[in-house]
């Protein structure tokens, strides 16, 4: 059942892609950071893409912040999403890329431009505003994408492993920054991860996806202390 305190409610969701079927039925409480973990090919990415409105679902509803968005287009769901790649347009400057989060037509008022610069400053990129993605490092590209999430100010943030290509130290840094950005924006976060230590570091709850089913979130510490059999197998314990 959906409660007032829930930011995301997924009700009897069913996704079919050829032979592959994924079902999900869970709620996520407001303000939580939830790790989505599971073997490759289990459907983690499919689940997030369906929530974001990028994949059609066969049945079920998605409710974000009390509003049924099941039939809404991706930009009208109250969701910001970062993908594994392709989060920035290579031909636009970082400031323009961030500005798209405010106005997709990119004609910003002075106040909005200041907001963009503020967001870039927040992630430590104020001096890089006029650079293009190709001229900055992978970590800086991730920061710029996070700055856009900040100005998008959506209540729910989905991360489909946007930091997968970064080294361990940088990835940890980005996860911390993500937590801060989410806290500043008051956003709830769902993030896919392969590494249990990432979940322990940056998540409160954990959703385990396996064999075509996304389980309801449980507290990370609790799950890690006493993992179910399937998760044990995945973790190699």
């Amino acid at each position: 059942m959906r409660g007032d305190d829930d930011m995301l409610s997924v009700e009897r969701l069913r996704i079919e892609q050829g032979d592959f079927v994924l079902t999900a039925d869970f709620n996520v409480r407001r303000g939580l950071r939830v790790a989505v973990i599971g073997p490759s090919g289990a459907g983690k990415s499919t689940l997030l893409n369906a929530l974001g409105g990028y994949i059609d679902v066969v049945a079920g509803t998605v409710v974000v912040d009390g509003i049924d968005v099941s039939a809404a287009s991706p930009d009208k769901r109250g969701i910001a999403m970062l993908f594994q790649d392709g989060n920035l347009f290579p031909h636009l400057t970082l400031a323009q890329n961030v500005g798209l989060g405010i106005r997709p037509a990119l004609r910003l008022s002075e106040a909005e431009t200041a907001q963009v610069m503020g967001a870039l400053g927040r992630v430590g990129l104020r001096d890089f505003a006029d650079r293009k993605p190709g001229d900055v490092s992978g970590g800086q590209q991730s920061r710029a994408a996070l700055a856009r999430v900040l100005v998008q100010a959506k209540p729910l943030l989905l991360l489909d492993e946007p930091f997968a290509a970064l080294g361990p130290a940088l990835r940890a840094e980005m996860l911390d920054l993500t937590s801060e950005v989410a806290r500043d924006a008051g956003a709830t976060v769902l993030m896919i991860t392969h590494a249990p230590e990432d979940a322990e570091r940056a998540a409160d709850d954990l959703i385990f996806v396996d064999e075509g089913r996304a389980e309801a979130p449980r507290a990370v510490a609790e799950v890690m202390a006493n993992p179910p059999e399937a998760l044990c197998a995945y973790l190699g314990r």
């Binding site: 990028y54 009208k76 969701i79 993908f83 347009f89 031909h91 997709p104 037509a105």
Partner: peptide, 24 residues
């Protein structure tokens, strides 16, 4: 490469051409 990004940002119509398609 960028279809999901533009959809998520709500790029439509003329803006989509101006900001994404023509430059790319």
């Amino acid at each position: 490469d960028y279809g999901r990004l533009s959809a998520g940002l709500g790029l439509h119509g003329f803006a989509l051409w101006r900001i994404m398609l023509v430059p790319r």
